[in-house]
Design a protein around this nucleic acid. Structure first.
Lengths: 343, 343
DNA sequence: GGCGCGGATGTGAGCGTTAACTTGGCAATG
DNA sequence: CATTGCCAAGTTAACGCTCACATCCGCGCC
């Protein structure tokens, strides 16, 4: 008459249920589950059959408790709505899965260090074994650097911080390629529509642009600045369209380039005949802008994968080696660039 | 001389360490942690001080083991690189956090039912308390419906499946609004650039378009079909540009509309003078297409939030009530539409 | 002034698993 | 034929927490 009286109780089967059914001890079931040696094939088969029959699932909490390993990694992401972060998250998840890990996410509300610390703590409380931080703002990066945490952390996408292992894109290189190409086409100089000043990515791309101009002895125009959005690109574009001597613009990302293209279009300045435009990222839509946008391609998925690889390596060894992997971006030429006409 | 000899051992503090330091029993610590009543303020303070001093963190695995609650929800997502899924994921995560849950993600490799089952199982093995499935393909939706799972599931974004609680967008309504508006402007009929045939979203939008045309007694042209990408929109656009009598096109999403706009531009067919175009989604860039795209806005973040709300409700009650919430999209007018000229 | 009562705290068991031993065999060895 | 050694299991004890219950204390009551 107890609560267990009904034969078909709701209770999930546990290891000892399987053991009983297979006529072995629970430890043998554990051995089978973990692929431990010294189990006779026949025994193994009986256990596996029992597992199937009961539809037994090991309890991950119990396992985590005793092994002290949760098989879970955390990802801290700033604005996972953007194409870049979303792609990285995707890459990380796929890589994590094939490495046998689960992925738990935590979005940041704001960019300050406290928010990063909070997110990492949250993940840590959940018991993640390691954390990937996708937080390209300088403030966040330095926050990560001074993070007090017992779990391994790797940062992704940016920065030259040395204390934290990191995988990043050759932003300076990519910016240099874009700028250099425009100069080679005969443009006297190249204007720059930069990203937010507090993003490492912005800073690096701007630096790559500036250094290339200086190396070529070209004048360095004032920088226009946006916030990565098409809207901000449009507004900057309205200003740029007023400048009489602009013949080439390098944009820090494709979305702003989209806005710029529209502003130039409305101002009646033809791209690429009057003005050449190059973006950064190579989002899937870039090839379908009007005109198709030349841009610097970066492989976000690969970025995520490499970050995870780094993190898993970190987990294996006890040495917190501050590695710094880098991915090389690639200039993709489309119709938005052309030779300088007036000169 | 034992391994514990060093005063500064690595071992994470546990509840009994806190208890010892505070001069109470572990149970009292537990009470403080869980906000249980019957703890004297002074005692509480001593415990809190001890917790702070040791930087104690409760072990979530141990707690999950005994409470049988992991405080974790799972999200199954198809292509979290796309704007829609990424935004929903973001909305879900934020909502989950404020409801006190962690979020674990699992991306699908392919669309078939097996893959969905696999992802849900994976999450379940991890011990999630509930699952949100963002899987708009018909195959996935029906897979969810017949999913054998002990955890509550809600689907998001699509479908008219009754067995599973779901929150979706009024796709038919939105499509009808768009189509109706174009007809009101005097267009004899409206062409449709549809999404993949196996997506519920495509089907619903197509149906909304078709019904509106029929209700208005307008002829129903053959449907062009893409795969949501700008590339496919461009290719369809090249075909559409050949058709002499097209004056209005309703696209199943904004990305395809972008491709369409470029194809029309290249073919020398002016938008909106010759052809009006309406998209669906209102991605942030839509306002910066050339020309700015009229589209049907859907609030993905809200969608995610509502899905989570539904799931949490499901968790509370034992009754698996198949609710079906719906979000109403909104037509946003921009310069890509105009009155029909020839008539 | 003994009694009951409820607030504050302690005790012990158990969640489901793995780790570390222990125990039986049986074949190879001297 | 006793001894070693290894394979194939079983037994027991954690892991760190919460739950149910037991205990202690001081107070108001008749």
């Amino acid at each position: 008459m107890g609560t267990e009286s009904a034969g078909t109780e709701q209770r999930q089967p546990v290891m000892s249920d399987v053991a009983k059914l297979a006529g072995v001890s629970h430890q043998t079931v554990s051995r089978v589950l973990n692929g431990a040696p010294h189990v006779r094939p026949g025994t193994r088969d009986r256990v596996l059959a029992a597992i199937r029959e009961l539809d037994y699932r090991p309890n991950s909490a119990a396992r985590a408790l005793v092994t002290r390993r949760s098989q879970t990694l955390g990802v801290v992401s700033f604005d996972s709505t953007l194409y870049g972060p979303a792609s990285m998250l995707d890459g990380i998840e796929r890589a994590a899965r094939s490495a046998g890990y689960f992925v738990s996410v935590a979005s940041l509300r704001s960019l300050d260090g406290r928010s990063v610390q909070e997110a990492v703590d949250r993940l840590r409380d959940q018991g993640v074994e390691g954390v990937v931080v996708i937080a390209p703002q300088t403030s966040a990066v330095s926050a990560v650097a001074r993070l007090s945490s017992s779990v391994p952390i790797v940062a992704v996408g940016s920065g030259n911080q040395t204390r934290v292992p990191m995988v990043s894109v050759g932003n300076r290189f990519g910016a240099g390629e874009a700028t250099g190409h425009l100069l080679d086409l005969g443009h006297r100089t190249v204007h720059h529509l930069a990203g937010p000043a507090n993003w490492v990515e912005s800073q690096d791309r701007e630096e790559g642009w500036r250094l290339t101009l200086q190396a070529a002895g070209a004048p360095v125009p004032d920088v226009e600045r946006g916030d990565w959005s098409a809207r901000s690109g449009y507004q900057a574009g309205l200003r740029i369209a007023q400048l009489p001597d602009v013949t080439a613009v390098f944009c820090a990302n494709d979305h702003m380039a989209l806005g710029l293209l529209r502003a130039l279009h409305e101002a009646g300045r033809s791209v690429p005949d009057e003005i050449s435009v190059v973006g950064f990222d190579d989002i899937p839509e870039a090839a379908y802008f009007i005109p198709p946008l030349s841009t610097v391609r970066q492989d976000f998925g690969e970025l995520g994968r490499r970050a995870l690889e780094l993190l898993v390596g970190e987990l294996g060894s006890t040495a917190p080696s501050p590695t710094h992997a880098q991915i090389t971006p690639e200039l993709v030429l489309r119709r938005s660039v052309g030779p300088a006409l007036r000169r």
